[in-house]
Amino acid sequence: MAMHYKDFLRIDHMPHMWCPGCGIGIIVKAMLRAIQTVEWPINDIAVISGIGCTSRAPGYLDMNTLHTTHGRALTFATGIKLMRPDKHVVVISGDGDAAAIGGNHLVHSCRRNIDITLIIVNNNIYGMTGGQCSPTTPLGAKAATSPWGNADPPFDISSLCKGAGATYVARGHVGSGVQLERLIRGGLNHKGFAVIEVLSNCHTQFGRRNKLSDPIELINNIVAKTVNVRQAAKMSREELAGKYPVGLLHQDEEREEYYEAYKKVIQLAEAALKR
């Protein structure tokens, strides 16, 4: 399907502020293609973000958007979804935004299983503020706040979300836009809380300090660490060490979505009050 960028983007806001070679462009494109193929009316979609490089994306989208505070995008999105459960809510966030300052809201959104699609761009660093350690910075990696290497163990965001109760968890990477589009589309079509973690490159802040300052080289490095989820199922724990399974990691269509459950409480209360 041909992509009609002008239907989605605020072309007058170009050029964007992302560094040349940044993976966020690939991810926004995959998101827009996924939105186009599910054929939702564009005005029925709200895209919410917090703070960081990724969170600048809604500024370039010609849609209903809310650029909120650091880490709180999911809480704003929850408010929107409960006010207008008939509409579609997409949140786009980074690893620092979603898993550090917003970590609490991330696990509680998973727990509720509210029908929101969350895309987390995981580039292992706080890019916008200049390359500080994030909760996904690998052990030993250098950052502006860890000149001798990071001592804080990183989160596995996808496992965290699965464990916290998200009913659709997928991991993609910027090396494959086509797969990413498919995974995001699956999340959009899923009734419940859907998380798509995207392994992305910040060559400017992460790569530069870790001998991977060339974007292609860093993307290749990311791709080399990935293994398809079907392949991963056949691998031993030792073989999987340091590898990131990609694809659809978890899907549960049985568990009730949050607003559906909430409606039943409303019906119960109304019935009791009528008596």
Partner: peptide, 19 residues
């Protein structure tokens, strides 16, 4: 500390001084 523009270079410099 936690990073935020335009403060971040304070804590970066402190991280450096500590390192």
């Amino acid at each position: 500390a936690y990073p935020i523009t335009p403060q971040t270079t304070i804590i970066e410099e402190l991280a450096n001084l500590v390192a």
